[in-house]
Nucleic acid binder design. Sequence first.
DNA 1: ACAATAAGTCAGAAAAGAATGACTACCCGG
DNA 2: CCGGGTAGTCATTCTTTTCTGACTTATTGT
Lengths: 104, 104
Amino acid sequence: MTTRSPLNENNDCPAEGLLKMLSGRWKAQILRLAIMEGPLRFNSLLRQLPGSNKQSVSVALKELEESGIIARTLINPKPLHIEYTLTEKGKGLIPVFKQIETLL
Amino acid sequence: MTTRSPLNENNDCPAEGLLKMLSGRWKAQILRLAIMEGPLRFNSLLRQLPGSNKQSVSVALKELEESGIIARTLINPKPLHIEYTLTEKGKGLIPVFKQIETLL
DNA sequence: ACAATAAGTCAGAAAAGAATGACTACCCGG
DNA sequence: CCGGGTAGTCATTCTTTTCTGACTTATTGT
Protein backbone atom coordinates (compact mmCIF):
# COMPACT_ATOMS: atom_id res chain seq x y z
CA MET A 1 0.00 0.00 0.00
CA THR A 2 1.39 3.32 -1.06
CA THR A 3 0.86 6.33 1.14
CA ARG A 4 -0.26 9.44 -0.64
CA SER A 5 -0.65 13.04 0.42
CA PRO A 6 -4.05 14.72 0.26
CA LEU A 7 -3.05 16.70 -2.80
CA ASN A 8 -1.81 13.65 -4.58
CA GLU A 9 -4.39 10.94 -4.15
CA ASN A 10 -4.13 8.04 -6.48
CA ASN A 11 -2.01 9.64 -9.18
CA ASP A 12 1.41 11.02 -9.87
CA CYS A 13 0.42 14.43 -11.19
CA PRO A 14 0.56 16.85 -8.26
CA ALA A 15 -1.37 19.62 -9.94
CA GLU A 16 -4.23 17.32 -10.78
CA GLY A 17 -5.30 16.84 -7.17
CA LEU A 18 -5.36 20.55 -6.48
CA LEU A 19 -7.12 21.25 -9.74
CA LYS A 20 -9.82 18.77 -8.81
CA MET A 21 -10.26 20.37 -5.38
CA LEU A 22 -10.71 23.78 -6.95
CA SER A 23 -12.76 22.61 -9.91
CA GLY A 24 -16.24 23.90 -10.57
CA ARG A 25 -17.68 27.25 -11.34
CA TRP A 26 -17.52 28.93 -7.92
CA LYS A 27 -14.67 27.56 -5.83
CA ALA A 28 -11.93 29.85 -7.11
CA GLN A 29 -14.03 32.94 -6.48
CA ILE A 30 -15.08 31.74 -3.04
CA LEU A 31 -11.45 31.13 -2.16
CA ARG A 32 -10.42 34.51 -3.45
CA LEU A 33 -13.03 36.18 -1.26
CA ALA A 34 -11.96 34.09 1.72
CA ILE A 35 -8.36 35.16 1.15
CA MET A 36 -9.13 38.82 0.53
CA GLU A 37 -11.95 39.45 2.97
CA GLY A 38 -11.62 36.87 5.72
CA PRO A 39 -14.62 35.03 7.20
CA LEU A 40 -17.55 34.58 4.85
CA ARG A 41 -21.25 34.18 5.48
CA PHE A 42 -23.54 32.24 3.20
CA ASN A 43 -25.98 34.90 2.08
CA SER A 44 -23.33 37.57 1.81
CA LEU A 45 -21.32 35.23 -0.37
CA LEU A 46 -24.32 34.64 -2.63
CA ARG A 47 -24.73 38.36 -3.09
CA GLN A 48 -21.06 38.74 -3.95
CA LEU A 49 -21.18 36.04 -6.62
CA PRO A 50 -23.41 37.37 -9.39
CA GLY A 51 -25.07 34.60 -11.34
CA SER A 52 -24.62 32.05 -8.60
CA ASN A 53 -27.33 30.24 -6.69
CA LYS A 54 -27.71 28.76 -3.21
CA GLN A 55 -27.49 25.18 -4.33
CA SER A 56 -24.22 25.54 -6.20
CA VAL A 57 -22.59 27.70 -3.56
CA SER A 58 -23.76 25.30 -0.88
CA VAL A 59 -22.20 22.37 -2.75
CA ALA A 60 -18.99 24.28 -3.41
CA LEU A 61 -18.63 25.19 0.26
CA LYS A 62 -19.28 21.60 1.29
CA GLU A 63 -16.64 20.30 -1.12
CA LEU A 64 -14.09 22.87 -0.04
CA GLU A 65 -14.80 21.85 3.52
CA GLU A 66 -14.37 18.16 2.66
CA SER A 67 -11.05 19.02 1.06
CA GLY A 68 -10.02 20.66 4.30
CA ILE A 69 -9.53 24.04 2.66
CA ILE A 70 -12.21 25.93 4.53
CA ALA A 71 -13.97 25.33 7.84
CA ARG A 72 -17.58 25.93 8.73
CA THR A 73 -18.03 27.40 12.18
CA LEU A 74 -21.20 28.03 14.12
CA ILE A 75 -20.60 31.42 15.65
CA ASN A 76 -24.01 31.83 17.19
CA PRO A 77 -27.06 29.55 17.18
CA LYS A 78 -29.54 32.06 18.60
CA PRO A 79 -29.60 34.48 15.72
CA LEU A 80 -28.14 31.91 13.36
CA HIS A 81 -24.65 32.92 12.38
CA ILE A 82 -22.23 30.68 10.52
CA GLU A 83 -18.81 31.57 9.22
CA TYR A 84 -16.60 29.99 6.60
CA THR A 85 -12.89 30.55 7.10
CA LEU A 86 -9.66 29.30 5.57
CA THR A 87 -8.01 26.42 7.40
CA GLU A 88 -4.23 26.17 7.67
CA LYS A 89 -4.28 24.02 4.58
CA GLY A 90 -6.38 26.66 2.85
CA LYS A 91 -3.88 29.35 3.80
CA GLY A 92 -1.21 27.20 2.22
CA LEU A 93 -2.84 27.94 -1.12
CA ILE A 94 -2.21 31.66 -0.85
CA PRO A 95 1.33 31.41 -2.30
CA VAL A 96 -0.08 29.52 -5.26
CA PHE A 97 -2.62 32.25 -5.88
CA LYS A 98 0.14 34.83 -5.60
CA GLN A 99 2.30 32.91 -8.02
CA ILE A 100 -0.56 32.85 -10.50
CA GLU A 101 -0.97 36.60 -10.21
CA THR A 102 2.63 37.08 -11.31
CA LEU A 103 1.64 35.49 -14.59
CA LEU A 104 -0.84 38.20 -15.48
CA MET B 1 -13.58 48.86 -23.30
CA THR B 2 -11.34 47.40 -20.66
CA THR B 3 -8.23 45.52 -21.66
CA ARG B 4 -7.67 42.25 -19.89
CA SER B 5 -4.80 39.84 -19.76
CA PRO B 6 -5.24 36.35 -21.18
CA LEU B 7 -5.30 34.81 -17.73
CA ASN B 8 -7.86 37.26 -16.51
CA GLU B 9 -10.53 37.53 -19.16
CA ASN B 10 -13.76 39.06 -18.05
CA ASN B 11 -13.34 38.61 -14.31
CA ASP B 12 -11.28 39.80 -11.42
CA CYS B 13 -10.21 36.45 -10.02
CA PRO B 14 -6.82 35.58 -11.47
CA ALA B 15 -6.87 31.94 -10.46
CA GLU B 16 -10.20 31.41 -12.13
CA GLY B 17 -8.87 31.98 -15.62
CA LEU B 18 -6.01 29.57 -15.15
CA LEU B 19 -8.26 27.01 -13.52
CA LYS B 20 -10.60 27.19 -16.49
CA MET B 21 -7.72 26.73 -18.93
CA LEU B 22 -6.57 23.63 -17.07
CA SER B 23 -10.01 22.24 -16.38
CA GLY B 24 -11.09 18.86 -17.63
CA ARG B 25 -9.92 15.36 -17.08
CA TRP B 26 -6.69 15.32 -19.13
CA LYS B 27 -5.13 18.75 -19.35
CA ALA B 28 -3.11 18.62 -16.15
CA GLN B 29 -1.59 15.28 -17.09
CA ILE B 30 -0.87 16.41 -20.63
CA LEU B 31 0.87 19.48 -19.28
CA ARG B 32 2.85 17.46 -16.82
CA LEU B 33 4.10 15.22 -19.62
CA ALA B 34 4.92 18.22 -21.77
CA ILE B 35 6.92 19.70 -18.90
CA MET B 36 8.69 16.46 -17.98
CA GLU B 37 9.29 14.90 -21.36
CA GLY B 38 9.31 17.68 -23.90
CA PRO B 39 7.59 17.40 -27.28
CA LEU B 40 4.59 15.10 -27.38
CA ARG B 41 3.04 13.11 -30.17
CA PHE B 42 -0.63 12.28 -30.31
CA ASN B 43 -0.57 8.49 -30.25
CA SER B 44 2.25 8.36 -27.75
CA LEU B 45 0.28 10.67 -25.51
CA LEU B 46 -2.77 8.44 -25.77
CA ARG B 47 -0.71 5.45 -24.69
CA GLN B 48 0.68 7.37 -21.74
CA LEU B 49 -2.78 8.37 -20.50
CA PRO B 50 -4.48 5.17 -19.42
CA GLY B 51 -8.24 5.39 -19.66
CA SER B 52 -8.15 8.24 -22.13
CA ASN B 53 -9.47 8.27 -25.68
CA LYS B 54 -8.61 10.09 -28.91
CA GLN B 55 -11.60 12.37 -28.84
CA SER B 56 -11.01 13.73 -25.34
CA VAL B 57 -7.27 14.08 -25.81
CA SER B 58 -7.84 15.77 -29.15
CA VAL B 59 -10.21 18.27 -27.56
CA ALA B 60 -7.86 18.87 -24.64
CA LEU B 61 -4.94 19.56 -26.97
CA LYS B 62 -7.05 21.90 -29.04
CA GLU B 63 -8.16 23.84 -25.98
CA LEU B 64 -4.63 24.06 -24.60
CA GLU B 65 -3.56 25.34 -27.98
CA GLU B 66 -6.35 27.92 -28.03
CA SER B 67 -5.23 29.06 -24.58
CA GLY B 68 -1.75 29.54 -26.00
CA ILE B 69 -0.22 27.05 -23.60
CA ILE B 70 0.95 24.51 -26.16
CA ALA B 71 1.70 24.73 -29.87
CA ARG B 72 0.98 22.17 -32.56
CA THR B 73 3.80 21.86 -35.07
CA LEU B 74 3.94 19.91 -38.28
CA ILE B 75 7.38 18.38 -38.21
CA ASN B 76 7.01 16.29 -41.33
CA PRO B 77 4.08 15.89 -43.73
CA LYS B 78 5.46 12.91 -45.65
CA PRO B 79 5.41 10.33 -42.92
CA LEU B 80 2.98 12.40 -40.90
CA HIS B 81 4.66 13.73 -37.80
CA ILE B 82 3.17 16.33 -35.50
CA GLU B 83 4.55 17.61 -32.22
CA TYR B 84 2.95 19.39 -29.32
CA THR B 85 5.28 21.61 -27.33
CA LEU B 86 4.99 24.17 -24.54
CA THR B 87 4.85 27.77 -25.68
CA GLU B 88 6.55 30.52 -23.69
CA LYS B 89 3.28 31.08 -21.92
CA GLY B 90 3.10 27.37 -21.20
CA LYS B 91 6.58 27.42 -19.73
CA GLY B 92 5.41 30.23 -17.49
CA LEU B 93 3.21 27.70 -15.75
CA ILE B 94 6.16 25.61 -14.59
CA PRO B 95 6.74 27.74 -11.46
CA VAL B 96 3.08 27.31 -10.56
CA PHE B 97 3.41 23.55 -10.86
CA LYS B 98 6.55 23.68 -8.75
CA GLN B 99 4.81 25.79 -6.14
CA ILE B 100 2.02 23.24 -5.97
CA GLU B 101 4.52 20.47 -5.42
CA THR B 102 5.82 22.23 -2.32
CA LEU B 103 2.34 21.78 -0.86
CA LEU B 104 2.52 18.01 -0.95
C1' DA C 1 -49.38 39.15 13.17
C1' DC C 2 -46.42 39.84 9.19
C1' DA C 3 -42.30 40.55 6.56
C1' DA C 4 -37.53 39.95 6.33
C1' DT C 5 -33.10 37.64 7.24
C1' DA C 6 -30.22 33.64 8.16
C1' DA C 7 -28.83 29.17 6.37
C1' DG C 8 -29.88 25.94 4.09
C1' DT C 9 -32.38 21.19 1.57
C1' DC C 10 -34.73 18.75 -2.19
C1' DA C 11 -36.43 17.13 -6.72
C1' DG C 12 -36.25 17.87 -11.34
C1' DA C 13 -34.60 20.05 -15.63
C1' DA C 14 -31.08 21.80 -18.49
C1' DA C 15 -26.45 22.22 -19.96
C1' DA C 16 -21.79 20.86 -20.28
C1' DG C 17 -18.21 17.37 -20.46
C1' DA C 18 -16.47 12.78 -21.51
C1' DA C 19 -16.53 8.30 -23.82
C1' DT C 20 -17.62 5.01 -27.80
C1' DG C 21 -17.22 3.11 -32.14
C1' DA C 22 -17.05 3.94 -36.93
C1' DC C 23 -14.66 6.19 -40.38
C1' DT C 24 -10.95 9.05 -43.19
C1' DA C 25 -6.45 9.72 -45.42
C1' DC C 26 -1.91 8.94 -46.00
C1' DC C 27 2.45 6.33 -45.62
C1' DC C 28 5.67 2.34 -44.76
C1' DG C 29 7.29 -2.50 -44.75
C1' DG C 30 6.86 -7.27 -46.28
C1' DC D 1 -2.00 -6.36 -51.60
C1' DC D 2 -2.27 -6.52 -46.55
C1' DG D 3 -1.38 -5.08 -41.79
C1' DG D 4 0.08 -1.55 -38.97
C1' DG D 5 1.34 3.15 -37.82
C1' DT D 6 0.50 8.32 -38.05
C1' DA D 7 -3.25 11.86 -36.78
C1' DG D 8 -7.16 12.76 -36.45
C1' DT D 9 -13.00 13.69 -37.26
C1' DC D 10 -17.93 12.69 -36.64
C1' DA D 11 -22.35 11.34 -34.65
C1' DT D 12 -24.34 9.46 -30.85
C1' DT D 13 -24.66 8.20 -26.20
C1' DC D 14 -23.58 8.44 -21.35
C1' DT D 15 -22.33 10.89 -17.24
C1' DT D 16 -21.48 14.77 -14.45
C1' DT D 17 -22.36 19.50 -13.26
C1' DT D 18 -25.07 23.27 -12.75
C1' DC D 19 -29.35 25.77 -12.28
C1' DT D 20 -34.35 26.56 -10.95
C1' DG D 21 -37.99 27.03 -7.93
C1' DA D 22 -40.35 25.36 -4.01
C1' DC D 23 -39.93 24.39 0.73
C1' DT D 24 -37.88 24.35 5.74
C1' DT D 25 -36.73 26.14 10.60
C1' DA D 26 -35.77 29.64 13.46
C1' DT D 27 -35.13 34.72 14.80
C1' DT D 28 -35.64 39.64 14.55
C1' DG D 29 -37.96 43.99 13.52
C1' DT D 30 -42.50 46.81 12.80
